[in-house]
Design a binder for these strands. Sequence first.
DNA 1: GGCATAAAGAACCGATCGGTTCATTAAAGA
DNA 2: TCTTTAATGAACCGATCGGTTCTTTATGCC
Lengths: 184, 184
Amino acid sequence: MGRPKTFTREAVLEKALPVFWRQGFADASLHELEHATGVNKSGLYAEFNGKEDLFVQSLRYYLERLEKQGLLTAEPLGWSNVERFLKRGACGLAGQKGCFAVNSMRECAILPPEAVGVIDRSRSKLKQLLARNIEAERPRMNADALAELVLTFFTGLSMERNLSSGRPSSVRKIDDLMNVVRTL
Amino acid sequence: MGRPKTFTREAVLEKALPVFWRQGFADASLHELEHATGVNKSGLYAEFNGKEDLFVQSLRYYLERLEKQGLLTAEPLGWSNVERFLKRGACGLAGQKGCFAVNSMRECAILPPEAVGVIDRSRSKLKQLLARNIEAERPRMNADALAELVLTFFTGLSMERNLSSGRPSSVRKIDDLMNVVRTL
DNA sequence: GGCATAAAGAACCGATCGGTTCATTAAAGA
DNA sequence: TCTTTAATGAACCGATCGGTTCTTTATGCC
């Protein structure tokens, strides 16, 4: 049988995620990742194919966790789902700021292409889910166009969380937006 | 008198800016900056106090150039200014993507504090200018709150330019937004 | 005790990082 | 020519980077 493993692949991702989230891909060093995960560099290398792979897996893990929350799939579909998504989707799971996927968009140029693809697909899916919720409310305005506006707003909201100021105002801002979109 | 200088401080910033814009602060190396500016490393060090200072000066230079365009100060104040700001403010001056200041928000944690302050102040000023233009149109909705929504939308718009897809849709998206806000 | 597996840790690789110094060369005015 | 200033380029610094390998130690089952 041999000695059993002392860490799960998921447990490593869970601890590596905040590092990438906070530092970004370029600025996250293997040394920090070792310390955060508690797994030796050789151990990390045995489990993943280097830093790029670890980043992509962390990103996938993050998006899967977010999906499981079902913020935009809870029945009945509608504005309440959209509002909850805006309020809780940009608040990190691991005590981090903003949205990991949105933050990563900044580094697209130096990210492994696989990561860019993951981000692209997750945004497409997000847009589709938003549109479905909006469509359920039978707005006068085109649901797809409205979904794009909301997604762009969410993106901006996530980015603003990287700043020290203006956190308390974000809830009010979301309320303002929801008041607007409900009339469209 | 001695030998005259062969480069301007401004000319260096003009060429250093795209590097920071594209690569971000952490991922821009002095080697790249040398190559882009055409000024030797020792020359750069004689003119600036290292990489951090060069970044801050580039950021200041970028914002000053943007201000001089007067996108939000042209008379008469109103929606047309806001629309022009959204359409041209996020299109890089130097053939770059999105907004340099917005991109830099991602790196707040590792940026020189001075840079964070510059970003903060520029956003405050931007919000104020937006509010002034909106106020001029006498909307039913609170102008400051509306200005915040527009600024967040702009932030999201700038970030989305880092992605390969969806560029053509951004003009339509801005039109959609303007159609909405004009009714508020 | 054997055997198999897993983890830790250290050593090492070549490369690059930001930063500093200095000797050399070039271009101006006096 | 002499002085002054500017610019270059190379050398060097200590540190860190991502990545690789190997030895050692620990822990399980048979």
